[in-house]
Design a binder for these strands. Structure first.
Lengths: 248, 248
DNA sequence: ATTGACCATGACGTAACGTAATAGTTTAGA
DNA sequence: TCTAAACTATTACGTTACGTCATGGTCAAT
């Protein structure tokens, strides 16, 4: 299939296809003779995924990461998109209600509070982005998740206890300087612990990445900070310093 | 209400409010002492309209024109938005269907054609933009519409016949050069006809604008071309030339 | 009196394309 | 067979609707 046919079929523009090609999102094979784009069946399936995610409000950069994730799974993707669409459907129904009531309020039949007048507009906090990140967002988390799901209950329990222990311990030194000897020794221990308990060898990069996540992902921040306020912040810094020091 | 409260209430950002202020879309009063923005109840109603139209996919520039249109009518606006939302709801339902079927097709339970796989994505041609333009889009059309709706059936009928006659006549010369004497004489007649039959004095600008519309608005193009293929194109050119020649 | 949360106005950045310019290719009709 | 219309490609600049600083004034509470 050439670009124009694809455009016609899907309702997107040829320029959009060019764009997706340019940003490495969807790169069809080229005709050897003239360099024209040729879209295969697989390309079309990928494009469908892209458009679904786009419909769900994901930025293209994020879509790219998702689709490239090693643990990406079409079935889960469909489920997620379905959830989003159902959510969106509800939002629209809310807006329709707001609309109908606004008409009545205009005619003086009823009165509406300001809060009511803006019901349904808030589409900023898309909870499904977070779910997507959970599913395929971070390669490191991915792999450990995959590993975790392969464990028995007892194994899981044991690991959970080990982590709990580790964090409780770490919480006691959370007010130290993250670069201090005490802190860095703890980081070494932590790094070893991670490598022992998760299914693969953590790179130092990934280790630092997890630390980053503790402060960028609220879900993690809250979780970690339950062991002591400020722990996530401390860990993020200390883990990064450790990773950097070991890399040189 | 200050900007932050509005933001919290509606779910949009303060920056967005600043932006709407900057482009003259929504300009709240300012506190005389410190220049802070202060949003009144009216501002909030207008904002609601803006957000509804935005939700319907209208660009801000268009929203501005709509709201400033002399014939703008909140009730009609609500109705239009309602139509759009119902349309959107259906589209989402279509996509949900596509999604469910795609999952089955992935599992090999059913097969899907490519066309089916992309059902629901086409949201480009929003039919409601055209309806909006019809309602409030063109000031000139507005006014004549307003006038028309104030007429009796017989008067309407008589005018319709007059227009029919005029267009039939114009169709006979549609292959002339639009700048020719014949064409320009016909334009003069047409201009007088417009001024006689519609409720107010057409400016030459508005006259040329109507000509423009004959070729930019498909609805009109098709209508006009029923009198003869290419008539709309001819009229658009001839009317512009006439208007220009009279303006100097 | 100071601090921290709020407001204002620039100015620049960005995402996801649209649009136009230029040039090579393919295809349908004279 | 030749030519014009209709595609294709790349490059490049434009656009919309804001986000994100940077800088500086304002207000409310300690």
């Amino acid at each position: 299939m050439n670009a124009k046919e694809v455009a016609k079929l899907t309702g997107i523009s040829v320029r959009t296809l060019h764009h997706y090609d340019a940003i490495n999102l969807l790169r069809p094979n080229r005709n050897k003779e003239n360099g024209y784009r040729e879209y295969s069946e697989e390309d079309m399936d990928k494009l469908q995924q892209i458009l679904f995610f786009r419909e769900c409000g994901f930025p293209l950069a994020k879509i790219q990461k998702l689709l490239n994730s090693s643990s990406f799974n079409r079935e889960e993707a469909f489920q997620l998109q379905k959830k989003y669409l159902l959510h969106e459907k509800k939002r629209i129904e809310t807006m329709l209600d707001t609309l109908n009531r606004s008409m009545k309020s205009m005619k003086g039949e009823i009165t509406m509070s300001l809060t009511e007048k803006f019901g349904g507009f808030d589409m900023n906090n898309n909870p499904y982005e977070e779910e997507a990140r959970r599913l395929w967002g971070d390669e490191a988390v991915d792999k450990s998740n995959a590993h975790i799901s392969s464990l028995t209950m007892e194994e899981k329990d044991s690991i959970a206890k080990g982590m709990d222990h580790l964090f409780t311990e770490l919480a006691t030194i959370r007010n130290e300087n993250p670069a201090s000897d005490t802190a860095q020794k703890a980081m070494e221990k932590m790094y070893r612990h991670f490598n022992k308990n998760f299914g693969y060898q953590y790179t130092l990069e990934a280790f630092a990445g997890v630390g980053q996540m503790y402060i960028t992902d609220i879900r993690f921040t809250e979780n970690v900070d339950q062991y002591g306020k400020g722990l996530s912040q401390f860990l993020a810094e200390a883990m990064k310093i450790y990773a950097d020091s070991q890399t040189e």
